[in-house]
Nucleic acid binder design. Sequence first.
DNA 1: GTAGTCACG
DNA 2: ACGTACGTGACTACA
Length: 876
Amino acid sequence: MGEKIVLIDGHSILNRAFYGVPDLTNSEGLHTNAVYGFLNIMFKILEEEKPDYLAVAFDLKAPTFRHKMYAEYKGTRKPMPQELHQQVPVIQDMLRAMEIPLLMLEGYEADDLLGTVSKRMEQEGLEVCVVSGDRDLLQLATEHIMIRIPKTKRTGTEIENYHTADVLEKYQVTPLQIIDLKALMGDASDNIPGIPGVGEKTATKIIAAYGSIENAYAHVEEIKPNKAKESLREHYALAQLSKELATINIEAPLEFELEEASMGVLYTEEAFELCKRLEFKNMLSRFECQGPVNRVSENFRKVSDLAEAEKIFETAAKAAHVGFELILAGKRVRGCALCFSEEDIYFIPAEGFISGAYLCGKIDMLLNETAAASTLDLKAQLPFFANHAREKLYDLALAAYLLNPLKDKYTYEDVAKEHMSMMIPSQEELLGRKGFEGAEDEKAVSDCACYIGYVAWAALEPMQKKLLDTGMDTLFREIEMPLVYTLHDMEREGIRVEAAALKQYGEQLIGRIGELETEIYAMAGETFNINSPKQLGVILFEKLKLPYGKKTKTGYSTAADVLEKLADEAPVVSRILEYRQLTKLKSTYADGLANYIAEDGRIHSTFKQTITATGRISSTEPNLQNIPIRMELGRLIRKVFIPKDGYVFVDADYSQIELRVLAAISGDETLIHAYREAQDIHRITASQVFHIPFDEVTDLQRRNAKAVNFGIVYGISSFGLSQDLSITRKEAAQYIEKYFETYPGIKKFLDDTVENAKKEGYVTTLFGRRRPMPELKAGNFMQRSFGERVAMNAPIQGTAADIIKIAMIRVNDRLKAENLKSRLILQVHDELLIEAEESETDEVKRILLEEMQGAAELSVKLEIDMHTGKSWYEAK
DNA sequence: GTAGTCACG
DNA sequence: ACGTACGTGACTACA
């Protein structure tokens, strides 16, 4: 068997991939789906063919000989969409990085280059495989040249293969006759004209019978049907032109050295970096076995001997810095990972003479002795530690979050990839879905732990440097790291919930839900699942023929704002709205929360520090940051949140923190002054914007001003404001214009922020937190506008988040420093809730006021509203 | 697993 | 012309 070469039709496969793979975008806003699909097809072919040589052909922009022959050639072809066009240089860079030669020649199309090279290679005795989405290439098929046409189907990519015989079988003509076929039937996609009145069926019959258009023309009188006969007679010249156009030139003057196409490693460092940038996670795993990266695992050691473990901890304490990770299986310590050099990478399992408690104690000690230590996800490990020095401790998951808050996970393999350019297997790959809890493969457990320890150690230096380079070092050390301990304290404390009262609340809802259900079915004339937007849509908009407003991807929208507009049209609508409200309260709050009440009668939510793009924290299992308050019925839920005996709740929230932050960081004199002057910022805004005396501002004017104030914080748009106020876009635009006239500093700040975001690719908060802004590089209006709003909002929301984080740390620390029994238990973005021992109430209030107000020194004073009560309901 | 909806700041 | 306010998490339905 001779050697084999694979030749790929670059544009054609890229095109096919573009339409076959759903849209993908990396965090820079680069579209990547076509590149991704291309590589997948290429790798699949390479795996199947295992060729000795590989090259990819591309068209150049310059006109080809076909343009000279036929002015309209490809003239009317649909231009490539921008999203695809962007990806052409990207795939070319990728192929170059993989050291695959690109075949390009001015005046020739990729087809011609493929034809030329495949014929030359065939002559040299090679097996040739040409990959294209374009059936034109079939004319090249021979015994030794196989044409492969990938088709994207639901089940994946299937590839049709054609040697001479396959073409004959499928098209009833020889490969070369494919050209004649095209000359008759034309090809819309290639702008080959063809002759009128002849389709695929007739063309095939004619060519099968006469062999070529020339011979067919010689026997034109015999041709049937009549329509084809006339057409051929009349348009023979056109058919000849088409034939020439469709003929692939196999003698292009292309310089091609076979040796350069020799299959190399493909997985070069450069290709790896590019894959990383494009965020091709799956693709990266192909690089896994390459290079030195995985050699670290040769130094992994499992240590089960107590004396040896002692020794390792001793050596670790003297190291420049140490990476560690307590390996947890649910509530059990399964061991610990320790790393302090490229050679010293250990997993110490909690078995035999080594107990979990021993390991926890050793790490606590180690942290007090060591110069610096790093780990991933410190908060998860804190329940197992007693006390240790905090200053030299680095949680690298947090560092990774600060460096790019847009990712959805910050696992060790992710950190390794991002910050060490290293591909290592993930926990799931090593241990399966259950992780350390279920894993029985001892070697895998040890390896996984060692990988974690190694990354915790090795990533510190590059990440520390990046934090310094990005100006986020202080934010990391003084806000995010200390906050870990604060959040852990809050999680451990939890909040007391009266189970019986919660149950009662739920039961009280059931009756009314049942009533509504009956009424809705009666009004609809049938029973259906009211909770199904799909079924509900059918009832409202088809059966009851109500006018539908918005449509969603899948059908009619039945969202509350749509239904509210229909409430007057049919009485069933308001019942549906009420039904929705009540079932929400029942399922999410009454029943939902009950499942989370722990043995101690309290709910311990988890606060997540690495989720939001803006720097806020989030709350899960359950989410205690979205307990109802706006509607009275929902608000009543808060009566079941109560302080423990002898305690009260003290609730403090920042008054309009985001708008104050905006006033301060924009430096707008008028707005800053307004905040110094007046209590009611929305009223004074109305007065200033509408040029009327403060006392004469109507409620409507105040409401409008308030909406504009909110809109500004969200990254204003006339459309959004018009929706909110139910006014026209024009009116909304006028409000905004007047607002900006009144507060020119705000306008300048927002404009500058967007401009700077476009230039730098990110925005920052007052404390240096960054949010990357990939959206702004995107071409389409929708995405770009979204990016602009985000750019305006992120510094505001983010700065407010920074401020309350500072306040939380200080409040929590001070409660402890003053030996108080009162504890911080909740944060709801601009609000802190403290469970205060009754006699400490005044001191707690003082601490809250001082630390919340003092968290940041702004040109606008931060005001705090405070309430106390015997339930969360009362304390608001 | 995704889409739609709705609770909060 | 395009068609959304910014940031989250939980629940239900449905493929």
